[in-house]
Amino acid sequence: MSKSMLSLTVNGRTRDDVVPDNMLLVDYLREVVGATGTKVGCDGGECGACTVIVDGKARHACLTLAVSCNGKAVETVESLERNGRMSALQRAFNEKLGAQCGFCTPGMIMASEALLRHTPNPNDDDIRRELAANICRCTGYVKIIESVHAAVAETSAKEAAE
């Protein structure tokens, strides 16, 4: 089996690992790094449960080879909390019932995070368009869209207060 050296940052921390060339990013994150927040749903890029952020852009970890992330910055849902406190997005998904069974939630939150980085004040259409690659079987999506709006509202209220 061919292995390669992989040097990257995962959730802000530099790592060097020797990984098999055919290892998928999702397996690397879950089994080598131990960050099991990222989920494997369809395993074929259709459901979005494995969405992580690589160099600032959303990406399916189940269709990405770990070694192709050499030198890049990978962020998973675990990166969002600060000192044990959830981020505005995580809190909004919790409080607005954007998560029901919760399996799609890490992917939904990371796709939403990627959206908010380039569009800080999205309207309904922006959210629908940018979360189109993420499937949820529970919520019917209405609560998810409300959650993203609630996170934006909380963040802007906080910024106004500061």
Binding site: G45, G48, T51, V54, K57, A58, R59, H60, T64, A111, A114, R129, E130, L131, A132, A133, N134
Partner: peptide, 9 residues
């Protein structure tokens, strides 16, 4: 093409 995440990579 496909969905927004696919178009990102």
């Amino acid at each position: 093409v496909a969905g927004p995440t696919h178009r990102d990579y």
